[in-house]
Amino acid sequence: MFNSHKVKIEGELLEKAKKCAEAAGYESVDEFVTHMLEKEIKKILPPEEGDSVSKEVVKKRLQGLGYIE
């Protein structure tokens, strides 16, 4: 996959991560690690500019959804 990077972790940690991923219902350890990182990053870093959009922009994006007026 483009824009993917490898991160080194210890074998023991990887084994544990695999077990956790399976137990939690993740499809793969990659998905598990990505999700964990996303959650932690959200806690630590402030939201990026453009992450939060105005109500007007929201309305525009949802226009035509059908289920909403």
Partner: peptide, 8 residues
């Protein structure tokens, strides 16, 4: 759609 909405 091209406007980025779900159909305007």
């Amino acid at each position: 759609d091209l406007k980025g909405s779900q159909g305007t």
